[in-house]
Every structure is written in structure tokens, then in C-alpha cells.
Computed example of a mutant assay.
Amino acid sequence: MAVGAFAKVMTTLLNSTHVHNADTLIRLVRSRPPGVPLLTVSNHMSTLDDPLMWGFKDFPSMDAKLARWVLAAEDICFKNRILSYLFRLGKCIPVTRGGGIYQEHMNEALDVLSGGGWLHTFPEGKVNQEDAPVRRLKWGTASLIVRAPVTPIVLPIVHSGFEKVMPERAFYGRRPPLPLCMKDIKIIIGEPMNLDLWSLRQTASTMSYKENLNNLGWPITYPDGLNEAAQRWLFVSISDRIRTAMERLRSFEIKITLGSRKTE
């Protein structure tokens, strides 16, 4: 509740925030079908994207039961016992960079989806404050979609402005000691993606794999029996679809920004 209140103050009072299609996210958080998980994905502009992006008007940011679970970098958010305790209270799941998609904590994220929960990921894998296209996505998010017993509702989100609230190199090449205020924030929420996993799995299972791949020892998936090469194709295909959806939202956000400037 305290973090949610902080997000409300920063996002709605101390900064100017405009949200497109907020009703879709609020509806899916509050009243999606029982047992159906929600997986939101977004670009990563600052270390405060989460929780600030959930602080906009009318969003239930102070309801702990409705709050998202989120993947968080172990080397940043779980440096010591105190931080680990606080971030765990905040429903954060540690992930080890370079630990692979089958690391232990990814199974914890999978448990959230298996229970019909809401999980948020930053599939770019790290903060990127450049005004540039969405980077190539890591495969972890796609692997969770494939492995989940009930296919999650995948909702893409793109935002801008948080890089101004918490710039990486504002004060002597470092982040400011406190978040900055009076910035313009835009949050563009898309529509649920239509991922035909059955067809994608069928395509992956029938493709020929004669390439020399660096085998990582991934287990064969059950029950479709996909080997590592087939899984790689599947994860790349899903990741590319998510990235394309996010890039469309980013282009839409640019049009909105240019339109508002012309109006001014």
C-alpha cells in the first residue's frame, strides 16, 4: 500500500501523466476469466518504471491482492537481506541475468501464471533510455507463455517519460537521489495479443533442424515433445510478434506526441 501510494503521488500529482486505453488494463486486472493468467510486457525506460507505471488515475495500485508479480534483476534488487525482504514483499521475483530461461526463479514465475495470476516482465532485459526502436527481446517471456498450462492473456504496453523522472546520468553521471518532478509521462496500453500457440507449435515441430546449434541442454517440452532447436524457433517467433506489437504502440505514442506539439 505504501509503494502504491508513492506511485500515485509521483504519477498523478507531481508529474503529468496521459494514459491511452487504460480501461483495458484495469478490466483485465480486476475481472478477467477465473484461472486465466495475465502477462503484461513493456519497454524499460528507468529503474522506477515499476511501480510508477501502475500509479495512474483509477488504477487499483494500493490493492495488494490485485498487484502484479514482476521479474526483477537479482544483482540490483536483491543485493542484501533487507532489499530482498522489501522486494519480496513487493511481489518481485529475482532472476539471474545470464542464468537461462530454465533457471529456478523462472519456475516461480511460471507458478504465478499457473495459478491464474498477473505477471509483468521487461523483455528487453535492461533499462534503455534512448529514443530508439524496441530492442530484441529476451526469450524468457516467450518461454513462460509456451510453458504455462493455461495460455496467458498477453498485453503489450509502451511508455515514455519515466526516463526523465529517473534519468540514469543526471547528476555527475549518476541517477538523481530522488525522482524528478514536473515531467510528461505517456503510457500506451495495447490490446490483448492473438497468439495461436497450437499453430506455432505445429510449425516448430515440423521444421527441419540441420543447423549446428550451441546446445544448452534444454529439456524436451511436454506434452508436445519439442526439442531445443524447435523451442528456439518458437521462442524467437513469439518474441518477434511481441516486439512488433510493442513497436506499433511506440509509433502510436510518437504520433500522439507530435500531434500535441502541433496543437500547442
Rank of each mutant, 00 (worst) to 15 (best):
V3R: 08
A5G: 06
A7I: 02
M10L: 06
M10P: 02
T11N: 01
T12W: 10
S16D: 12
T17H: 00
H20R: 13
H20K: 11
D23V: 00
I26Y: 02
L28P: 01
S31E: 12
V36I: 12
S42A: 14
L48M: 13
L48W: 09
L48A: 10
P51Q: 05
W54P: 00
G55K: 06
A72D: 11
D75P: 03
D75G: 03
L86R: 07
C92K: 12
P94W: 12
P94K: 10
T96P: 02
G100I: 03
D111S: 14
L113Y: 09
G115W: 10
G115L: 05
G115A: 11
W118S: 08
K126H: 11
L137P: 00
W139R: 15
L144T: 07
L144G: 10
L144C: 13
I145Q: 09
V146E: 13
P149D: 15
P156W: 01
S160I: 10
V165M: 04
M166H: 09
R174S: 12
L178E: 02
D184A: 03
I185K: 00
L200N: 01
M207H: 15
L213V: 15
W218N: 04
P219L: 13
P223Q: 07
W233F: 08
S237G: 01
S237P: 01
R250H: 02
S251H: 08
I256Y: 02
L258P: 00
